[in-house]
Design a protein around this nucleic acid. Structure first.
Length: 204
DNA sequence: CAACGGATCAGCT
DNA sequence: GCTGATCCGTTGG
């Protein structure tokens, strides 16, 4: 967060609002968490879109207490608890008042790798595994439900930005771990990246 | 490697 | 009650 910061914060108007456009746009850009113990940051390499009227979306049946953040303007965080144990980070998409979001599924660690390994607390300190998978990445980044509803395009400690690198070559597949609308091609990943999650057949 | 079960709970039916 | 946008350790080919 200095003049020499290698990453540039996005303003909301930098981001496409539409869900699949945002899911693709985010690939290759960075998620940053500036904590008291230093910066944790990495390149987003895998996303999934949960569109309006999507049967697998948490707000398919309308606004509820859990998914209310999905109705915020695009660029706000939606964090929810899954399987009672873990958390997943989404970025709200579409316009305010429309429930939709992009799930961030995997990140290539760039900064704060030592702290990521500490936060994860497993024996596995391979950089490749630190943020590969939606729940792993929230653990590695220290993200929890206190981040639900925060503006990732604001000036807070958790934000998204540009690393000003060449755009990734994007692959497309069906989404992972869902049972409804399971055939829709709404998962996007950086082709060839070893930091992407999921079975190999989905990462060609 | 692939497959399986346990952990653990909010939200919904 | 039952179901998950999951992970991890263990078991078996």
């Amino acid at each position: 967060m200095s003049a020499s910061d290698p990453y540039r914060r996005f303003r909301r108007e930098d981001l496409p609002a539409e869900s699949t456009a945002l899911a693709r746009f985010l690939l290759g850009n960075v998620l940053v968490h500036d904590t008291v113990d230093g910066r944790i940051a990495g390149r987003i390499v895998e996303t999934e879109a949960y569109t309006p009227d999507d049967p697998s979306s948490h707000c398919y049946r309308g606004l509820t207490a859990r998914c209310r953040s999905m109705f915020l303007e695009h660029g706000f965080a939606y964090v929810y608890r899954i399987y009672g144990l873990y958390r997943c980070l989404n970025i709200a998409s579409e316009e305010a008042g429309v429930g939709a979001a992009v799930l961030v599924r995997a990140i290539e660690p760039l900064d704060g790798i030592v702290q990521m390994a500490r936060l994860r607390g497993t024996g596995d300190e391979r950089v490749r595994d630190l943020a590969r998978g939606p729940a792993r990445l929230t653990i590695a980044f220290g993200i929890d439900e206190t981040h639900d509803g925060v503006d990732l395009c604001g000036f807070g400690p958790l934000w998204i930005g540009s690393a000003d690198v060449a755009p990734a070559e994007i692959g497309t597949s069906i989404r992972i771990g869902i049972t409804k609308a399971a055939d829709l091609p709404l998962r996007f990943y950086e082709r060839g990246s070893p930091y992407v999650s999921g079975p190999r057949r989905l990462n060609l």
